[in-house]
Nucleic acid binder design. Sequence first.
DNA 1: GCCTCACCTTGATCAGGATCAAACTCTACG
DNA 2: CGTAGAGTTTGATCCTGATCAAGGTGAGGC
Lengths: 235, 235
Amino acid sequence: MKPDLKVMAKEHTEVCARQQFADCRNCRLGALCLPIALAAADVERLNNIVERKLPLQRGDHLYREDDTFRSVYAVHSGTVKTYHITDDGQEQVTGFFFPGEIVGMGGIGCGRFGSSAKALETTSICEIPFASLGELSMQLPSLQKHFFQLMSQEIVEDEKLITLLSKSSAEQRIAALLLSISVRNARRNLSSTRFRLPMSRTDIANYLGLTIETVSRLFTRFARNGLVTSNNKEI
Amino acid sequence: MKPDLKVMAKEHTEVCARQQFADCRNCRLGALCLPIALAAADVERLNNIVERKLPLQRGDHLYREDDTFRSVYAVHSGTVKTYHITDDGQEQVTGFFFPGEIVGMGGIGCGRFGSSAKALETTSICEIPFASLGELSMQLPSLQKHFFQLMSQEIVEDEKLITLLSKSSAEQRIAALLLSISVRNARRNLSSTRFRLPMSRTDIANYLGLTIETVSRLFTRFARNGLVTSNNKEI
DNA sequence: GCCTCACCTTGATCAGGATCAAACTCTACG
DNA sequence: CGTAGAGTTTGATCCTGATCAAGGTGAGGC
């Protein structure tokens, strides 16, 4: 398994560098990402405002808490976690973002990011300057609408997490996270039953409001009950 | 105290009915609500799309989960809670909304409301049809921007709650809620140190992921320690 | 005035998950 | 190959807040 990962990461980086991961018009995430709302001609206009960035390496920051907000970011490949640091210095993971998802919408409100975003693995990102997106939205009603929808969905997602944290046992929380990842994988036409978890136990625990020991115990319990086979991770 | 409340509620209803709580142009919440972003001439255009509704009585629903989404709602006076029913039939309170705040943004995403909204006391509401708001936003960039900001702020607020639920003790949760209400009162130029809590212990407990017993115990503990004097509620 | 019902407070006990502690597994690196 | 260090697993114990149970308070209705 180990060599695979290494090789995959390297290949990935190279492919991205070579192709500049191309263009919204032939990105295979189009059906998930912003273009979903647009006519072909308009995708090009969107494409023109998007800036591709060099791939982030594991641990690199996409932005940090209190950075001034200029753009939102679409994850093209890889995984990003968002987190903030609480008053007493602890980290709180607030979300995981997979390809096709938009990160950074929490920054629109006050002009600065309310949280930091960090790559969990080699990750490539499309930066969408918010000023340009705003202008374009004024001309393309469906883009405005879609963007409102994306934000609204993030609110709904957050509320689901609130419910999860407020009402559910450790077991249910982990099950819910696994299911959520499974669904998001399915949306990208990946297997919903076999996948690698890109985040560490620590991040999972932190996100779910548990300790790493509890998470670990539950994974082994799930495995004992035959629900999950895990190694580097699969349902 | 009891007769006061009754009288207040009745007066409130009458005033609203008489004035139709007027007009965005002379609403004293203008500085908080949508008009904050607009030039005087444009407030009138906003005002024209807003529909005032008859006051809701305690317990009335503003909308219900799965209703088709048509509008967002500004709280003019009173208090609203949002909640959903989990798969196992339990209620989960997801937010409290005070005057000047906008409810219902979670519905934009999928065209239906993801939660129900219910009045905690006599409450008057300005309904803002979302289609009209969208059109107007296409013409008034600052309105579009402000609305993006409002949604973003809701995301940030939800993330704060997530952190609270995930990291904090019962004591910290309650303290945080009281402070949050205090700040929101201050924004409306009400006292930040003396106020009535419009929601029941049950709602507080539910919102904070605690039991009503725990909430009650902590209020009395706070009172013993002299942090709070409570009866119908004041810090 | 009394009864009812909803809401709140207080007490006793229990349990899920945190905390503390230690060993094990990879991966990286010299 | 051996060592270092991060990440993970497992075990023993403790504590916060849930649960169960009972009594108190206040408003409305008859």
